[in-house]
């Protein structure tokens, strides 16, 4: 038996959720799996927006499950009921657990009050993906947008969530911005709850 085996307890005796193993999924393994999801979805759609819809649907189910898990694990069962609360939960807790870091920014939309944006300069799902020119505005971050939508919808904040590539000066590659547009009743409720 190797030296390492004698120091660590057998695999099945170890706790699954130690801080060491929690984020222990190889980026390569995830990248290949995600690549395969995109290729599979591509065979079943006829245009770019359908592909984005399909990826968002996959992400939606991840979001629903992540909410359940993280509220239990990190929030001790406490449910967010304010817009800012749930947004920072997404920006911090969800991002950290899924992508190993918090999102780069969380901003309020400039044009409308019901719009918020979460941006990431190097979104994990897009790290290895170059979109061909003929696919135009496709952003595979639609998967992450689906996750966000899943978390929001199942915690009582129905919203329309889309992913966009935003080019900005001084950056070699476009960042991914996830645009969240809340339903009117969510805004109304948040106003009623006051500050």
């Amino acid at each position: 038996m190797s030296q390492r085996g004698s120091v660590l307890p057998p695999l099945v005796d170890r706790h699954i959720l130690t801080s060491k193993t929690r984020n222990d999924v190889g980026v390569g393994a995830f990248a290949f799996l995600f690549s395969e999801i995109v290729q599979y979805s591509q065979t079943r759609v006829s245009n770019v927006s359908e592909l984005e819809r399909k990826l968002a649907d996959v992400g939606f189910d991840v979001g629903v499950r992540m909410l359940e898990l993280l509220v239990h694990r990190e929030k001790a069962g406490k449910r967010e009921n304010r817009i800012l609360g749930i947004l920072s939960f997404l920006h911090t807790n969800v991002w950290k657990n899924l992508f190993g870091k918090t999102a780069d920014s969380l901003e309020r939309g400039t044009s409308a009050d019901d719009e918020y944006m979460i941006s990431d300069h190097d979104l994990l799902v897009n790290r290895f993906i170059s979109v061909p020119r003929d696919m135009g505005h496709l952003n595979c971050g639609a998967f992450a947008a689906g996750i966000v939508e899943g978390v929001l919808k199942s915690s009582g904040f129905p919203a329309r969530v889309t992913a966009h590539s935003v080019t900005s000066e001084g950056l070699s590659r476009p960042k991914t911005t996830i645009l969240i547009k809340f339903s009117p009743e969510v805004i109304e409720r948040d106003e009623r709850l006051g500050s």
Partner: peptide, 15 residues
């Protein structure tokens, strides 16, 4: 790892 690349075809990947 790019889903839009076909094996054995010319490489056209921006990244």
């Amino acid at each position: 790892k790019n889903p839009f690349y076909e094996l054995d075809m010319p490489i056209r990947c921006e990244l």
